[in-house]
Nucleic acid binder design. Structure first.
Lengths: 335, 335
DNA sequence: TTGAAAGCGCTAACAC
DNA sequence: GTGTTAGCGCTTTCAA
């Protein structure tokens, strides 16, 4: 059952068994082999609780997500998981969304119960209380996607992301460009949408093109929201219609494309559409987008916090790349 | 720092503090309040490792998923999480997919390290080794989606799911119906696709309609796969073309719809399409589908294993409902 | 290279 | 209602 039984079976001491199981170099090779064999025969299962109690390290990291069923969340989670697996750590998932959605609960220090050695936060916006709890916990923390004051952050440059799309469209000759962004209904960082919108506005200004106030639409970062926003933007007289729509996510962009089709408009002839992310659906449907790699971001975040939890102090995080992927939803404007 | 400090600060014993913190009824009300207040002031954080060691229960359940970025996975995970939150348990995520994807690793008893009190398995097919490890671990286990021998299972009746779609189409007058199913590339249960396909075949037979062997296509349970399968099925002379396509998932069905459009076919005039799931995209796009509720399945699974871990023996699991949702991708055949 | 012994922070009898 | 006393199963000095 425990290390004790193995000690008895082998005639060794608990201490040596413990060392052998962990493969410490101070143990004779044959001893290690013997211990491991016996452990296997006995069906030994180490107790993470006991090890955790003794060492103070749980070999687990917590991942806090605002919602679970979003493309970005799932991809980033995959990256974090891959890295944690490699490091031999477990992943404890804290989902703030969901019914009841008691956000604060997740951050109360009693909730963490010292179950994890570090934290990865997914594109969350933290309030004062949450920030304080994190501070107190003293857990190594990295935020993915969306800058958070006082916390290490990894993600694409959201200003640049929007600017890349605008530059592409302007080069094609577009001047009348609309924007679909908006707040995610469920707790995504406020920062991301705002920064992308600002990046859009500034890039447009740089190009000497003005944006009508009515050409900023709210797509709620969802497909359905994109359809609604697209319809609002495009269901107007041709001369009132933008020739291109920049969307802050692929899902919204796909919604805008659908809206265009429903209105009998051709994409990209009547209207160009761009997204952000690199969603698989967009690839199949030929959506021009500014692609990012949330999985890579997740991996970097996980690696960083694990190292930190082990006492290392990893240097500054590398910026995440975003690159324009031109496909079939953008073209020169027809007027 | 620990319970000890609180004991000192209050002049109580460790035992009483422990009881007060847990709100046991044997403690005087004022004592409870005092202890909690002091704990708060001291910034006390309970140690799950210590509690786990002492009680043998970790207040955590493991969720094993084959892949993380699938609609079903994310939804079910959300349901499991909601229930675990309510029960005050943590969720430890084990992802079998991902790079390296060392499936076995996840099941080796050493991996579980006694970190969880129970397991929820998401639509996995287990091999002999894995099954044995589970048996040995003696952890309460429930499998969601896809029957697994010797394990409690929750999910829709996959036979019925396909039959519902067929019945609907046959009632509309369809006789020439194709099927898009296939294996998920990444470890989904083999059982689900097979059972749905069999349900389809049997329902067709019951209706007195035969299915051409070439009308079974592999959509790999993905959107891109659906496009490919749809193209293969529909890019033929009109008389060789099925008048309807039953798909084993909404994502594949959406792919088939896209394929049809690309071939200049109108849905549902030229071809009817049905899916399975209840994906949000399908709702927006008017996809007729057999909807299921993975979130509810997740909740039931979580509740069941938690109860079992607490010593209760919950009765048999209620079957999960699947219901036909008729929208705009199905109609009478035009020939 | 191995052993003995002292905890890690909490819970659970068992007394009082 | 509260206190005392053993552990839970491991790791880690310190010796040998």
């Amino acid at each position: 059952m425990g290390i004790q039984e193995i000690a008895q079976a082998t005639g060794l001491s608990k201490a040596t068994v413990s060392r052998a199981l962990r493969g410490l170099p101070t143990v004779a090779r044959p001893t290690i082999d013997q211990v491991r064999r016996v452990a296997d025969e006995l069906g030994y299962v180490p107790s993470s609780a006991a090890a955790g109690l003794a060492t103070g390290r749980q070999r687990a990291v917590g991942v806090v997500v605002p919602v679970i069923d979003r493309w970005f969340t799932a991809k980033a989670l995959g990256g974090v998981d891959a890295e944690l697996q490699a490091a031999g750590h477990d992943l404890v998932l804290y989902n703030l969304g969901g019914p009841g959605g008691d956000r604060h609960r997740a951050f109360r220090r009693t909730m963490l119960r010292q179950r994890v050695d570090a934290l990865v936060l997914l594109s969350l916006v933290l309030d004062e209380t949450e920030r304080r709890e994190l501070q107190v916990s003293e857990l190594p923390t990295v935020v993915i996607g969306g800058p958070a004051r006082d916390l290490r952050n990894i993600g694409v440059d959201d200003h640049e992301v929007a600017a890349l799309a605008v530059t592409h469209l302007v080069e094609l000759g577009h001047r009348d460009v609309a924007y679909v962004g908006g707040q995610d209904e469920a707790g995504f960082s406020v920062a991301v949408p705002y920064r992308r919108r600002d990046g859009f506005t500034e890039a447009m200004a740089r190009a000497g093109a003005s944006v009508r106030p009515t050409w900023y639409a709210d797509g709620r970062f969802s497909f359905a929201g994109g359809v609604a926003a697209g319809t609002a933007l495009l269901d107007v007289a041709a001369r009132e219609r933008p020739t291109a729509v920049v969307c802050a996510s692929d899902e919204m962009a796909l919604g805008v494309v659908v809206a265009a089709h429903r209105l009998g408009l051709d994409v990209p002839r009547d209207v160009s559409v761009t997204g952000v992310d690199g969603h698989e659906y967009g690839e199949v449907l030929g959506l021009t987008t500014v692609a990012q790699d949330p999985e890579a971001q997740g991996r970097v975040a996980a690696r960083t916090v694990v190292l930190e939890a082990q006492g290392a102090s990893p240097g500054p995080l590398p910026p995440s790349a975003a690159r324009l992927v031109v496909r079939r939803t953008t073209a020169r404007p027809s007027r």
